[in-house]
Amino acid sequence: MMKPFLFTKFLLFFLLPSLVWSQNSGQALDKGSAILEATLNGKLIKFERKLGASMIKENNSLTITGQTSDDIFNAQSIVLNISSVNLDTKIPKGEYKIVPEDDATTYLVRAEYVVISGGNSSYWWSNAAVVKGGSIIIEEISDTHIKGKFSFTGVFENEDGSMNAKNLVKVTKGVFDLPLKIRGVLDPQ
């Protein structure tokens, strides 16, 4: 199986850019209808830029993303992902717990927090093998909208790829209320 940090890097570098690039930069997203925010180590952070919620119909993979800034060299980002393990299981409303990858039977659930400062990135992953707990709760889901809550403890990834269980980010009171785009893997961006 793919290691959690490699899986999430795949999401960050493959799915996140596709969500960001697929948005029409000339078309502003109505901030009143799109919310992605969480409390990180006690401080409320609003991810109001580059918001996206996308479901890939061929594999039932759901990704929710947002950034604090349009500045690609200085921003904070959140990425939430729920993927069907057997590819044909739909993602209905309900609670999706973050469990160690080897324990995932129906859904693989991952979350990450990223800080980009001066072009250098630092990653905190929801690595349930290191820190237990966390979930994504979908309260409402349709072909055009998704709403819910999330929480997790992010574990810092060292430069050598190892996880630092002493450097944690506690993500609590996370909420999202976003338009949902359902698309195919090969749909044009």
Rank of each mutant, 00 (worst) to 15 (best):
T8R: 04
K9N: 01
L11I: 14
F13C: 07
L16Y: 10
P17G: 06
W21T: 12
S22T: 10
S25R: 10
A28W: 11
S33R: 13
S33T: 14
S33W: 00
E37Q: 14
A38G: 02
L40I: 14
K43G: 02
K50Y: 11
M55H: 02
I56K: 01
K57W: 05
K57I: 11
L62F: 05
A75F: 05
Q76W: 02
V79D: 02
N81M: 11
I91W: 07
P92D: 08
G94W: 15
E95V: 15
E95Y: 01
Y96N: 08
Y96A: 07
D102R: 11
D103M: 13
T105I: 14
Y107H: 12
R110Q: 13
V114E: 12
V115K: 10
S122I: 06
S122D: 11
Y123W: 13
A128I: 09
A129D: 14
V130N: 03
V131T: 06
G133P: 06
G134I: 14
E139R: 03
E140N: 12
E140I: 10
I141R: 14
I141G: 08
F150Q: 10
V155A: 05
F156T: 14
E157V: 12
S162G: 08
A165E: 14
K166P: 07
N167P: 05
K170Q: 12
V171P: 00
K173I: 11
D177Y: 04
D177N: 13
L178H: 09
P179S: 15
P179A: 15
L180F: 11
L180S: 11
I182A: 09
R183S: 07
G184V: 09
L186C: 10
